[in-house]
Amino acid sequence: MKTSKGAIFLPGDSLPIPPGYKVIGSFSEVRGKHVICTTITLVSIKGTTIKLVPLKGVYIPNVGDKVIGIAKHISVDHCIFDINSPYPAILQINGFPTKSQSRIDMREQFTVGTVIYGEVKGKFGPYISLTLQGPELGILSKGFVLEISPVKIPRFVGKRGSMINMIKDMLKCNILVGMNGRVWIESDEYEIIKIIREVIDKIERESHVSGLTDRVKNLIAARLKELGVSK
């Protein structure tokens, strides 16, 4: 299997697709036998797969995405959330996780600033429709919300959750990841939040440089050592 290290491509740059190769990744256009990058992209070739990873981009919601939203407008029967996307999201009563939906007043459930972990259900007019029905979904009552570039979320999670599981294990905290570039952390210690903030900054800056998981592991270990926690 032939593997090549990633190269940075700029908008308009094209790459020929050899016969039998497939292209994985967003923010690109396939034109005939060429793939054309539309954003600053890290291109790597592994075997017969050309992988395109954008280094910067905005969050465009897809059905099934789990997102972290912040309430910004509340009405009797619906609530509008900011989901870090160009499109605001709406949660209607039918998306609420209770059977007696007819008796719900949204104004009693949410205030401006309430944080939720919801799932994208589809579109509703100009809004993105959300639901809170599902495991893990609901109102996040305590914890911190940190932001990361949405295109770096796969790097934050890692292959089969390797990065996030390592962070959870080392820092003994609960983390929920929204595909919209928001990360919710539940921990009693403020120092842990500070370490995760530092980890996020490192991922944002160095996601295109190989060996990131090891560097993050070393960073957490160093910070824990400074705090006097043996690992």
């Binding site: 700029l10 908008p11 308009g12 923010f27 054309i36 539309t38 954003t39 600053i40 954008p54 280094l55 910067k56 981009g57 905005v58 570039s149 295109v151």
Partner: peptide, 11 residues
Amino acid sequence: LANAGIPMRDL
């Protein structure tokens, strides 16, 4: 614009 991650056909 490229730095902001906005999809472009070319610079």
